[in-house]
């Protein structure tokens, strides 16, 4: 038997992404709770694993949710109601699988197809909101409908700026190939085009319903909106877990585009699997930056209330759109100046 497959780059990518995203999730959610607790005069998770500062609390919560009975209420459209969360989390996590983790650890083997992978991951991410609308529709409940309608409205506010900021970076780098994108970032993309970075961050917060844009599932009037009828495993896959996977994928993309991806200056990595440690180091560096970016989103919970829907739309169209157009112009200018 040939054991060579054990060192296949794809297998390692897959395993790494699953394991790492799980750990990143655990860390970020823990950080979110702990950070909010620190700001709010309290301690946060503690009693599950006091030595680790309550780090394992999320596992206990997830276990509790998973063993609790999933209820499908009368009047729900069963098929979509039950498959909605699965679609949600698949889309949200699947997007990140299309981006390489290091030059060789990747799912798409053909280098010529990599540019498509990048574009496709963005497309898949933008589809997540459709999954939310599906969920809201299938729940057949006024609050869920209103939440779904809001989600659809917010998409109009962030989608164009998000794509434009993406475009700005692509113009700047002159390529869609992730490997080349990382190579061209002699300075982190966030410094080359700070406007695009700002727009991307804000649009990500809107897209993943982070504070202050937690509008579709705003507790104040629509009682967690599209997810208001979910419990048990459905809640884990959509509201509790899926949304974090979406944040992970967006942050992953943002790290690639704006924070230099896996690139460490003056560090050349050999080929897989000879230079395994080098690759793992790069992957770790990439994921670390992603985690830090996600922690920023998590910290917003402690500092921000929720913005109003119409103001969000106004902000999207009057603020973000203008900013993102400026970001494109900035990129074009930089390109002509010749950086």
């Amino acid at each position: 038997m040939d054991w060579g497959f054990l060192f296949s780059a794809r297998l390692w990518f897959f395993v790494l992404m699953f394991a790492a995203s799980g750990i990143v999730l655990l860390t970020v959610v823990w950080f979110e709770r702990k950070a909010a607790a620190r700001v709010q005069m309290r301690v946060g998770p503690y009693h599950v694993s006091p030595q680790l500062g309550g780090y394992l609390q999320l596992l206990a919560d997830a276990f509790k949710f998973i063993i609790s009975e999933p209820i499908v209420h009368k009047g729900a459209y069963r098929l979509l109601f039950m498959w909605g969360p699965a679609i949600f989390v698949t889309l949200a996590f699947g997007a990140s699988l299309l981006i390489p983790l290091t030059p060789e650890l990747r799912l798409i083997r053909d280098v010529n197809l990599l540019p498509y992978g990048l574009v496709f991951s963005l497309v898949v991410l933008l589809l997540v909101s459709i999954a939310i609308v599906l969920i809201g529709w299938s729940a057949n409940n006024k609050f869920a409908y209103i939440g779904a309608a809001r989600e659809a409205l917010i998409v109009t506010a962030y989608e164009l700026p998000l794509l434009l900021s993406f475009l700005a970076m692509v113009i700047l780098y002159g390529t869609l190939n992730p490997i080349e994108i990382v190579e061209r970032q002699w300075l982190a993309g966030a410094l080359l085009n700070p406007l695009a970075f700002l727009v991307f961050i804000i649009a990500t917060a809107m897209a993943t319903a982070k504070f202050p844009f937690e509008i579709a599932d705003y507790e104040g009037d629509v009682a967690t909106g599209p997810y208001s009828d979910y419990g048990g495993i459905f809640l884990v896959l959509s509201f509790a877990g899926g949304a974090y996977y979406a944040t992970f994928s967006y942050s992953f993309l943002a790290t690639l585009l704006f924070l230099g991806g896996w690139g460490i200056p003056n560090f050349a990595v050999g080929s897989w699997p000879q230079d395994m440690l080098g690759h793992l180091l790069l992957a770790g560096w990439f994921l670390l930056k992603t985690t830090i970016l996600m922690m920023f989103f998590a910290f917003l919970r402690a500092a921000m209330p929720v913005l109003r829907l119409d103001h969000t739309l106004l902000f999207g169209w009057r603020g973000l759109l203008v900013l993102s157009i400026l970001a494109v112009v900035w990129s074009v200018v930089l390109k002509f100046v010749g950086i």
Binding site: A35, R38, V39, M41, R42, V43, A303
Partner: peptide, 19 residues
């Protein structure tokens, strides 16, 4: 300013929790 206040509370928490 709001982010600064939150960050200051994050760095220097004023916890009153009783276990």
């Amino acid at each position: 300013d709001a982010l600064r206040v939150a960050a200051r509370n994050f760095v220097k928490p004023e916890r009153i929790t009783v276990y």
